[in-house]
Write a protein that binds this DNA or RNA. Structure first.
Length: 113
DNA sequence: CGCAGATGGCTAG
DNA sequence: CTAGCCATCTGCG
């Protein structure tokens, strides 16, 4: 029972639906995701992701920052959880530099809006 | 380089 | 309704 026993809002469902469209081995930035959702706030997207990192169906690990850095994971900006995020992405053939910056920008997913 | 402000949606009171 | 949060972004010094 978690602290997250709250029904998802319409906005959150939009975020999750968009995340599912991202194929394995690709990543999106908070800004691009927000833009696809017709939302001008990348922070709102990040906040929605923070509240629901519980579902394996929702690949919240495929969302990074616009500058190519990993960003946060499971509520943390740095530390072991972010390392886990990098590990998961590495498993999907998405490699990062030592600093934590995305190597191949070709992994960035784009929508056809 | 670092920091403050903008930004939009969500939660708590 | 208001005020404050956010896993960001941009611009300014």
């Amino acid at each position: 029972m978690g602290l997250l026993s709250r029904p998802p809002t319409a906005f959150e469902e939009r975020v999750y639906a968009a995340l599912r469209e991202i194929p394995r081995g690709r990543v999106v930035t908070y800004a691009v995701l927000a833009q696809h959702l017709n939302c001008r706030s990348a922070q709102a997207v990040g906040q929605a992701l923070k509240r629901n990192p519980f579902a394996p169906d929702v690949p919240c690990h495929r969302v990074i920052r616009s500058d190519g850095f990993l960003g946060g994971y499971a509520g943390k900006l740095r530390g072991e959880r972010v390392e886990r995020k990098r590990n998961i992405l590495a498993r999907e053939s998405v490699r990062f530099d030592e600093d934590g910056r995305l190597r191949d920008e070709g992994c960035l997913w784009r929508w056809e809006d």
